[in-house]
């Protein structure tokens, strides 16, 4: 009963919002300004149909997800180990943190002109030398410029949260396992990493959020012929506002889905963190 009540409460505003939307769209009666609810829902319910000549909703989501996951994956591969090293060693911190801090305040979008000058419309397909076939279609959509922007967005949240996590590990935890016979690797793998995991996870969550946000801007770059961001801008150019809104809704839904995964992991594996002290 209590659960039901909670669900109802969280649904009040979304439902009011949808009702307002529907009323307004009927009053305005111009689908080039505000399409009716059912038009957007219709597109969402048939994600496989081809839209305005740039493939289905599914295809565009797929391309966007691949871009984000690769840029984000690179940010994890570099950010987490680097964060661990900086967090563990004063010397490495002195060596790198000043340098890295030069780049941190730069909004990922500010890189766009430079990235275009460097990479143009080169893609992973160009790098690995694939020129035809199904693989080409996918790889050619993974433009280096986009991956770079997404990487830049995700890298710093991951890095700083990893450093913060490692530095925040209680010294007595490390000392106590040292006196129990642990070596350096034991300390890293059995203490520092698990102890800073909640913080690293926070970094991963924020990083994925930022990466996803950078996507639309990245997909507005030249050479983009697919992706949810491209779908939105392209639909705008042909005044299909219903598709624009569908794209926006899709981005929101996928963002919520990502967030949900992280929340599940936190609840399932890191209960100790919220319960200790």
């Amino acid at each position: 009963m209590k659960k039901l009540k909670e669900v109802v409460i969280t649904l009040i505003f979304p439902i009011l919002f949808l009702i307002m939307w529907q009323i307004l769209s009927i009053r305005i009666d111009n689908h080039m300004i505000l399409p009716e609810l059912q038009r957007v829902i219709g597109i969402l319910l048939e994600p496989r149909q081809s839209l305005i000549g740039i493939g289905s909703l599914f295809w565009n989501i797929y391309i966007s997800l691949m871009r984000v996951l690769i840029g984000y994956g690179m940010a994890i591969i570099l950010g987490v180990p680097l964060g661990i090293m900086i967090g563990c060693s004063r010397k490495i911190e002195k060596l790198l943190s000043g340098f890295l801090n030069l780049f941190r305040p730069i909004p990922p979008l500010a890189w766009v002109p430079l990235v275009l000058a460097w990479f143009g419309i080169a893609s992973i397909a160009t790098v690995v030398g694939v020129t035809s076939g199904k693989l080409y279609t996918l790889l050619n959509n993974l433009k280096l410029s986009m991956l770079f922007i997404i990487f830049m967005g995700a890298f710093f949240p991951i890095l700083t949260n990893t450093i913060f996590g490692i530095k925040g590990v209680q010294k007595t935890l490390v000392d106590s396992v040292l006196t129990l016979g642990a070596n350096k690797w034991h300390v890293l793998l059995k203490v520092l990493l698990p102890a800073s995991m909640p913080s690293i996870l926070t970094g991963l969550k924020i990083g994925l959020g930022v990466a996803w946000m950078c996507l639309v801007s990245a997909e507005m770059l030249p050479g983009s012929i697919a992706g949810v961001g491209y779908l939105i801008t392209h639909a705008y150019q042909v005044t299909r506002i219903d598709i624009v809104i569908t794209g926006i809704v899709t981005i929101s839904l996928i963002g919520i889905f990502f967030e949900g995964i992280f929340r599940f992991i936190e609840k399932k594996f890191f209960k100790w963190q919220s319960m200790s002290r």
């Binding site: 106590s176 006196t179 129990l180 016979g181 203490v191 698990p194």
Partner: peptide, 19 residues
């Protein structure tokens, strides 16, 4: 020079691994 295996230590608090 470093902790030896013939000795171990108990601290004031927060020394158990919480996970």
């Amino acid at each position: 020079k470093k902790p030896i295996s013939e000795a171990s230590m108990v601290f004031q608090e927060y020394s158990l691994l919480p996970w």
